[in-house]
Amino acid sequence: MPRLRLTGRGLWITALIVPPLAVMVTFVAYPILSALAYAFYDWQGLQRGDFVGLANFHEVLFTEPFATWTRNAFVHNVIVFFSLMVIQNGFGFILAYALWRELPGAAFHRVAVFLPVVLSTVIIGFLWKLFFHPLFGPVNQIFRGLGLDFLAQPWLGQSSTALASLIFVNAWAWVGFPTLVFLAGMQRIPGEILDAARMETDSEWVVIKKIVWPLVAPSATVVFILLFIGSFNWFELPYIMVGLDGSPFGSTDVLGLYFYRTAFGNQSAGVQDFGRGSALAVITFLFIAIVAAFWTVRLRKREIQL
């Protein structure tokens, strides 16, 4: 009969596993589970009241005005996800391809493209807030200097341009990440395959479509899924640039800001509701987890093992 003896190797393994496991349980598993539990209670500020079943979920999803707010925030997250998918990941792929083909200045651009990724979100947010300043911001100054006065807009103050401006800043800052991942994927493509392909065709497009794109599928899986998670957890950049209210009048509101306001309150709404906030967090978490899981499985299927 095998016995678990805490000597030598066993002890060593246990000593290595227990600390990270403890950290994970305390700081990851426990908060998620407790948020899940909080969502089923009525809260009087910080005091937990009665068990109310699914009432909090019902409120955030179906009771006005919360339902409209939730829908509004969710729609914005969806817009953010699809726009970034096209701009950030699409442009990232093109940049990666240009770097991989070693166009002139590739060494410099490899660093330049990735540089903003290293900057902290706080710095990026404040920097671009200054750039978008309606009176003195460089963005409007440049447009005016070029004689394009009609483009000198209060970008962050208009409901029609605010969200697009945030998406642009996000893409500017993080395009380096998909670029790097795609580039790594491209560099893994064996030279023989490419040489063989070039013997068949002169078309760059055919090479991209038939060889490069299918073979960087694992990289695509990673950047797609991470972008999906990031888009629905979007918080720092809108928080810094447009504030907790999703200014102007909710046109940049996203689930992250909405959750924070609901659970912790803000200066203009002296109400904290952990119950509704937790319900929102749970819904967001489940949505992200389920969609990401299904999508990962699907994306994995189209990956080719060489």
Binding site: P65, G157, S159, S247, P248, F249, S268, A269, V271
Partner: peptide
């Protein structure tokens, strides 16, 4: 009107912001 949801402050702020934007 700041202590129940939706707070009067949040409503007024958003509506005035909307009004001054001409919407």
């Amino acid at each position: 009107f700041r202590y129940e949801e939706p707070s009067g402050s949040v409503l007024l702020q958003a509506e005035v912001q909307r009004m001054l934007a001409g919407e």
